[in-house]
Design a protein around this nucleic acid. Sequence first.
DNA 1: CTTGGGACCTGGCTGC
DNA 2: TGCAGCCAGGTCCCAA
Length: 280
Amino acid sequence: MPELPEVETIKSELEPCLVGRKFEEVVVGDATAVQGLPAGRFQDGLAGRTVCGLARRGKFFIVRLDNKQALIIHLRMTGNLILEDKDRSLPSQLTHARVRATFKLDNGRVLAFIDRRRLGRVWLVNDEKEIVGKLGPEPLGDDFSSEVFAKLLARHRAPIKAVLCDQRVVAGIGNMYADEVLYEARIHPLTLANKLSPRATSRLHSAIRSVLAKAIANKGASVDTYFRPDCRQGTAHHEFKVAHHLHDECPLCGGKVQRIVVRGRGTYFCPRCQKLGRSR
DNA sequence: CTTGGGACCTGGCTGC
DNA sequence: TGCAGCCAGGTCCCAA
């Protein structure tokens, strides 16, 4: 499931292949992917446009065009952006997945938006703020200070796990990295956000930045169907301590990783290292 | 304003 | 062996 580190990896690996290239032809294979305008107008609006830059905001992938419009893609759960290559076949997880759109470049290469569960979305907009304007701060950005974070948390009395996954609070964290971040900060996922002590808040702030930065360095986590544009996997999941590690030993205390459900989402944590109501 | 529950979607798994 | 039904989770929509 692509979260911030996965989308950031896709963006940086596509940059040398896309920037400066022109879309020769765009074909929508699944019209439900296109939001805000008919699929035909999406195709026509992109044909002939040149890519002048790539960006990422939260989990949104942004392709900036020469006419100031932007193509925005959200991969949701199972979306992939794959640069097709005749010399290699798709991973088995993707071979029967739906091709929701293809973007043919002026050098003959084809970027394919492949999405097994069809939850991903694409937009073509005049102003990218229409889509990403309501997102909270970028967790790796300079303006995401511990003080800013503390003010955001003070407004919420929901479980911290749920608040971390709320894109209006902080952009880019999903279910899996929320668990890793909370483990790193030794905070129980059910702790109410506005009850975190200043020291816990500060630990959480630095855990967010270190966990995400390390995952980017490892090119994202291939726990399910995530592949990079060249079909290679990321290795960030090899470093996971609790996410998807049910009943495994906590590397710190040797206790067993437990799973609970928070706001309908599977949540992994170490009950001995992450205690409710404690804020060291 | 915030919170929380349901819907969407499909392949893989569980249990009868 | 077959198959119905559940589960995974990012986001949107809705009600309280």
